[in-house]
């Protein structure tokens, strides 16, 4: 604090302090004057309202004129090369469907059962009266756990041995009384009629879930796993066709105000880059499909 002495000396002419108080910096006089005019330079007044930046309402979709596109067999040949040596059950093909769509408005969201199931190891729990006709149907459809109180007790003890949970309408009340929402809710397993997991047709829902996949549009793109690495080109073709057909149906079912179209379809996999598909199954130089079925 060597500078205290000259400071107080400077202020002496203005404030005339009777006592020598330690001067703080904010008490030092400032010689620039500011008056509240309300009209600062470069304010809102100067901006031209007609030049206001337009907010984009649609996602950018660039022209695919210069993109290279592949037939399904060619893309699969490359993908298999990229995926060589990876465990065939853990590596998956996935499809990204880019849509021409507005940013807001309804999104495409649906569930579908692919001709060749991608993941068949999903364990399903059905909550319905045990030893009833419904439970038998559910077991036949592929449910791994069926029951009411037994399952509730198991869940309360922390044994959740399933990946999906479905509830029959008649058992919904018991489910709510069991107070499982706190346990199942955060895991996304709590059945609710909103997600169509409280149903009358338990067997049908189970059947859809066993080989079924869900997809939804996010940021203008639908992404969905369509196959395991070990699938043959024919199997992949039927899966891709089924998925795209379903998406097209969904797009047609949307209200007339919104117009959505498929812009690009890209096939990728766990470790391979994305290959834009041109819609053909085989190109002129593609290999026979038999050769592409070997891992």
């Amino acid at each position: 604090m060597a500078s205290k002495a000259p400071l107080s000396h400077l202020c002496a002419s203005i404030r005339r302090p009777t006592t020598q108080l330690p001067l703080l910096p904010f008490l030092a006089p400032s010689f620039t004057c500011r008056y509240a005019s309300g009209l600062s330079k470069g304010g809102r007044r100067d901006r031209d309202p007609s030049k206001k930046k337009k907010t984009r309402t649609e996602f950018i979709n660039l022209s695919l004129k210069n993109a290279i596109q592949f037939s399904l067999c060619d893309a699969m040949r490359y993908i298999r090369a990229f995926e060589v040596g990876r465990p065939p059950t853990s590596s998956k093909y996935d499809l990204a469907i880019r849509l021409r769509t507005v940013k807001n408005g309804p999104v495409v969201r649906n569930r579908l059962r692919l001709p060749h199931a991608v993941d068949s190891s999903v364990r399903i729990c059905v909550i319905c009266p045990p030893n009833s006709a419904i439970s038998k149907q559910a077991i036949n459809a592929g449910a791994s756990l069926v029951g009411e109180e037994v399952i509730f007790d198991a869940i309360k003890e922390g044994r959740i041995e399933f990946d999906r949970c479905i509830c029959h309408v008649d058992s919904a009340q018991k489910l709510n009384q069991a107070n499982l929402g706190r346990i199942l809710g955060p895991r996304g397993l709590m059945p609710s009629s909103k997600t169509a997991t409280i149903t009358k047709d338990v067997a049908g829902t189970v059947r859809n879930l066993v080989g079924g996949t869900e997809y939804r549009e996010r940021l203008g793109v639908i992404r969905c796993a369509v196959g395991q690495l070990g699938f043959t080109p024919e199997e992949m073709r039927s899966n891709v066709k089924a998925l795209i057909g379903n998406v097209k149906q969904d797009l047609a079912l949307l209200s007339e105000k919104v117009n959505k179209e498929i812009h690009e379809v890209v096939l990728s996999s766990t470790t391979a880059p994305g290959f834009s598909l041109n819609g053909d199954f085989r190109g002129p130089t593609s290999l026979p499909t038999r050769e592409l079925s070997v891992l």
Partner: peptide, 11 residues
Amino acid sequence: KYHNPAISMTI
């Protein structure tokens, strides 16, 4: 693998 897709290559 790219040049010999018909040959099985496992790890």
